[in-house]
Write a protein that binds this DNA or RNA. Structure first.
Length: 722
DNA sequence: TGCGGTGGGTTTTTT
DNA sequence: ACCCACCGCA
C-alpha cells in the first residue's frame, strides 16, 4: 500500500511531490533522486488526489528512462497506473501524429528516417541542385537543417533569416528540396516528429484542445536538454491547465550542439512568473569527496543556477589521479586497478570523451581477459545488414520510400547497376512518381529498357511480399529476408563476416518476435517505429557482469561504484574544438561535472604524457578541469607506485602479469591446445600446431589453409574454435 | 558492375 | 591511424 506521507523522502523531495498545481521547476542536482520524486509525484497525483491516469503525461528523453519510469510506477500503483502516458518526446509525438497526421497533409503510412537516411536525401538534393559537397558538406547541411527544425523554422521562415547571405540561402534551398523529398517519400526525420506535432497542434485548435484537456498534469524530465521545438510542444500541451512540472539540472546540459537550449530551464521562472522552484541538493549517490570535486569544477561556470551538492555519507576515498606515459600506459593502469579490486566487473565504468579512445583500453582489457562491453560506436540498428532488412520492410510498407528502394534494389546483387538506378531516380524526380512505380513500369522508359526484366521482377517480388504479411511476425520478417534472397546470398558467401551478419539478422528476427509479444496491437508500422526510435544505451543491461566503456555523453543518468575518466587532457577533454569559445568550454565543463558525479565510491582520473591523436603524437597538458579540483581531494599516483619514469610499456605490461594471477580468480580465457581447428577473421581456417599458455593468454602457432603458419596471441587474434 | 588505390577529414549524438 | 568517398581500371 502506498504511504501518502512519503516517509522515505526528504523534506525537499516531499515538497516537490506535494506541489501539484501550477508550474513547478525542480532543480535536481546529480544523484538527488529526481526519478524517485517523479515517480512518487505521479503516484501521489493518482492515489492521493484522485487524478485519472489518462490525465497524466510524463515525458523523458530516452526509452530507458521512460521504461524505468513505467516499471517503477507499475510497482507502486499496479493496475491503477494503467493509461499514464509515460514516454519519450518522440514516441509521445508519434502517438499524436498517428491519429491526425493527415490533417497536415502527410501520408498516414509514413516511416521514420534516421540520420543516415537523411544524409542520403541531402546528397540527392546537392546533386539535383548542382552544389558541390566540398562547399556544402552533407553532414554540415544536415545539422544546419536539423537546427532549423529544432527552432521550428520551416524553409519560408528560414529564408527570412538568410538575409541575402549566399551560403545560408543555398542551404535554405537544399532544406526546401529536402523537405519536399521527405514528403514525397512518405518519411519524417527525427526532428520532423516534434516539429510536425507542434504544427499539427498549432493549426488544429480541435486537436490542441483535445490534448490540452486530456493532459491535466504534464511532467518533463531532463528539461535542460529540451530544444525550442520541445519547449513549444510542452508549452502547448500544458497550456490549459498550466500544471507543468519540469525536472532538470542546468549543470548537466551537455547537448547544446544538438540544439538543446539551456534558456528553457534558466528562463522557466520568467516564462511562468507564478512558478515555484524547488532545489534538490542532497545527493544519495556519491561520497563527499567526489561531490566536492564536482562542485569545485562546476562553480567555474558563469551561467548557472547556484547549487551545492552535499551528502550525509562520509568523505570517502580520495580521487586518484594517474599520469601514464602513453595512452597504453594509461589503459594498463585502468586494467590493473580493475584486476586488483575485489569488486565485480559491472561495478566499473570507463568514460572518455571520444569513441576512438576506447580501442587502446579494449586491447588492454582483452589482454587481461576481462569481460567488457562498449556502448556507442556502431549501433545494432546501424549495421548494414540490419539497415538493409529494415529497408525491405519499409519498402513493403511504403512504396514511395525511394531511399529504402535505392538501398536494397541491388542488395544482394541483381544486376541492377548504378546507372540504371540513376536513370530511375531521374525519372522519378522529373515525373513526380516514386522510383518503385518507375521501375514497375520500366517498359515505358527507353533508358530502362536494358534492365527492364530485372526491374519488373524486383517490383513483383516486393509486391508479392506485401501479400504475405501474416500471423507470426518474426516468420514474416524471416520470409521477407529469404524470398528477397538476402539470407540465401549471405549463406552462400560463407565468410566470417557473412556469418556475423546472419547472426545479426536472426537477432533482428527474434526482436520482431519480442515486439509482437509485447505490443498491444502489433503491426509492421509499429515494428518499424520501434526499431527507429531505439538508442544504444537503451539496451545497456547493468546486470551483465562486464566492465562498461562509453563516452561521457552516454553516461549521463547512469551511476557506478567505480568510475574512470580517461584522457583528462587539454585537447582531448576539453576537446580541441571547444577551447575557442567560452560557451563551448562551459559545456565541456558540464560534461566533466556529469562524469565526476557518475561515481559512487571511487573516481580515477587518468591522462597520458604522450598520446597519438589523429595520426600524430601529442604532448597534452593535464585538463584544466582537473586543475580546478582542490589538490587536497586528490591522491596523485603519477610518479609513485607503478610507473617509474624509465618503465617502458613492455615492462609495465610484464609487471601487470606478475601482479594479476594472485589478484582474483577470473574466468579463464578460451583455452587452446595443439590440434584444435580454429577460424580467424582474416586468415580463415587453420590448425593449431603449438599452444603455449602465457599468463591469461596463449601464444599460438597456427597453420592456416590460406597463408601458411603464423604466430598469434589468442587474446588479439579473435579466434573461433571449430 | 565491381574492385583497389588515393586523398581528405577527423567530438560529443538521448531520438 | 583510420575511415570514408571518389576515381580509374578490369
Amino acid at each position: 500500500m502506498l504511504d501518502l506521507t512519503f516517509p522515505n523522502l526528504n523534506d525537499k523531495q516531499r515538497e516537490a511531490v506535494f506541489t501539484t498545481d501550477g508550474p513547478l521547476l525542480i532543480l535536481a542536482g546529480a544523484g538527488s533522486g529526481k526519478t524517485t520524486v517523479l515517480v512518487n509525484k505521479v503516484a501521489y497525483l493518482i492515489e492521493g488526489k484522485g487524478v485519472k491516469p489518462y490525465n497524466v503525461l510524463a515525458i523523458t528523453f530516452t526509452n530507458k528512462a521512460a521504461s524505468e519510469l513505467k516499471t517503477r510506477l507499475n510497482a507502486m500503483l499496479g493496475q491503477s497506473g494503467e493509461g499514464i502516458w509515460a514516454s519519450t518526446f518522440h514516441s509521445a509525438c508519434m502517438k499524436i501524429l498517428f491519429r491526425d497526421i493527415k490533417k497536415i497533409n502527410y501520408p498516414e503510412n509514413f516511416c521514420i528516417y534516421d540520420t543516415a537516411d537523411s544524409l542520403t536525401v541531402i546528397k540527392e538534393c546537392l546533386k539535383e541542385l548542382n552544389l558541390s559537397d566540398k562547399i556544402f558538406p552533407p553532414k554540415q547541411v544536415r545539422s544546419a537543417i536539423s537546427r532549423a527544425k529544432d527552432e521550428l523554422l520551416f524553409p519560408d521562415e528560414y529564408e527570412n533569416i538568410c538575409d541575402g547571405d549566399y551560403r545560408l540561402s543555398q542551404i535554405c534551398k537544399i532544406y526546401r528540396l529536402y523537405n519536399d523529398k521527405l514528403k514525397t517519400y512518405g518519411a519524417l526525420d527525427f526532428d520532423d516528429i516534434i516539429m510536425l506535432t507542434v504544427l499539427l497542434l498549432e493549426q488544429n485548435p480541435d486537436v490542441l484542445s483535445f490534448y490540452q484537456s486530456k493532459f491535466k498534469f504534464v511532467l518533463v524530465d531532463e528539461y535542460q536538454d529540451t530544444n525550442h521545438a520541445q519547449y513549444r510542444l510542452v508549452s502547448l500541451l500544458a497550456g490549459k491547465h498550466r500544471n507543468l512540472c519540469v525536472v532538470g539540472d542546468d549543470d548537466q546540459s551537455i547537448y547544446k550542439f544538438r540544439g538543446a537550449d539551456i534558456e528553457n530551464i534558466l528562463g522557466f521562472e520568467k516564462q511562468f512568473p507564478e512558478a515555484k522552484t524547488i532545489k534538490l541538493e542532497e545527493n544519495y549517490r556519491s561520497s563527499q569527496n567526489i561531490l566536492d570535486a564536482a562542485n569545485n569544477v562546476i562553480k567555474n561556470n558563469s551561467e548557472r543556477k547556484s547549487k551545492r551538492l552535499w551528502t550525509s555519507k562520509g568523505e570517502g576515498e580520495k580521487i586518484t589521479l594517474f599520469k601514464g606515459q602513453t595512452e597504453y600506459d594509461e589503459a594498463r593502469f585502468i586494467v590493473e586497478k580493475i584486476e586488483l579490486s575485489a569488486k565485480s566487473y559491472n561495478d566499473f565504468a570507463v568514460l572518455y570523451r571520444m569513441n576512438s579512445q576506447s580501442r587502446v583500453i579494449e586491447d588492454a582489457l582483452t589482454r587481461a581477459a576481462i569481460p567488457y562491453r562498449v556502448l556507442g560506436g556502431l549501433r545494432f540498428y546501424d549495421r548494414k545488414e540490419i539497415k538493409d532488412a529494415i529497408a525491405y520492410l519499409r519498402l513493403i510498407f511504403n512504396k514511395n520510400d525511394n531511399v529504402s528502394l535505392k538501398r536494397i534494389i541491388n542488395e544482394p546483387k541483381r544486376g541492377i547497376g548504378k546507372t540504371t538506378v540513376q536513370y530511375a531516380e531521374d525519372l522519378s524526380a522529373q515525373l513526380g512518381i516514386s522510383m518503385f512505380d518507375v521501375c514497375k513500369k520500366a517498359r515505358l522508359y527507353p533508358t530502362l529498357e536494358r534492365s527492364r526484366a530485372r526491374l519488373e521482377q524486383f517490383c513483383a517480388m516486393i509486391e508479392g511480399l506485401g501479400g504475405i504479411e501474416q500471423q507470426p511476425f518474426d516468420a514474416f520478417v524471416k520470409e521477407v529476408l529469404i524470398q528477397t534472397d538476402y539470407i540465401p546470398a549471405l549463406e552462400a558467401e560463407n565468410s566470417i563476416e557473412s556469418i556475423t551478419r546472419l547472426e545479426n539478422l536472426y537477432e533482428l528476427i527474434s526482436s520482431a518476435k519480442e515486439y509482437e509479444q509485447s505490443a498491444d496491437e502489433p503491426s509492421l508500422s509499429g515494428f518499424l517505429e520501434s526499431v527507429s526510435l531505439v538508442a544504444d544505451v537503451d539496451n545497456y543491461d547493468e546486470a551483465q557482469n562486464a566492465v562498461v566503456l562509453m563516452t561521457l555523453h552516454s553516461a549521463k543518468g547512469l551511476e557506478f561504484p567505480t568510475v574512470f575518466i580517461a584522457g583528462a587532457e587539454e585537447g582531448v577533454f576539453p576537446s580541441l574544438l571547444s577551447t575557442a569559445s567560452n560557451e563551448e568550454l562551459e559545456e565541456e565543463r558540464r560534461l566533466c561535472y556529469v562524469g565526476i558525479t557518475r561515481a559512487k565510491e571511487q573516481l580515477y582520473i587518468t591522462h597520458a604524457g604522450t598520446r597519438t591523436l589523429f595520426g600524430s603524437t601529442k604532448h597534452n597538458r593535464l585538463s584544466r578541469f582537473i586543475e580546478e579540483i582542490p589538490s587536497s581531494l586528490i591522491e596523485n599516483l603519477t610518479s609513485s607506485l607503478i610507473a617509474p619514469k624509465q618503465a617502458t610499456v613492455a615492462t609495465a605490461y610484464a609487471k601487470t602479469n606478475i601482479l594479476s594471477p594472485a589478484a582474483k580468480p577470473k574466468k579463464p580465457a578460451m583455452s587452446f591446445s595443439a590440434g584444435d581447428t580454429v577460424l580467424h577473421k582474416k586468415f580463415g581456417n587453420g590448425v593449431i600446431i603449438n599452444a603455449i599458455n602465457v599468463g591469461n593468454d596463449y601464444h599460438l602457432e597456427i597453420a592456416f589453409e590460406s597463408c601458411g603458419t603464423k604466430h598469434l596471441m589468442a587474446a588479439y587474434a579473435n579466434l573461433t574454435k571449430l
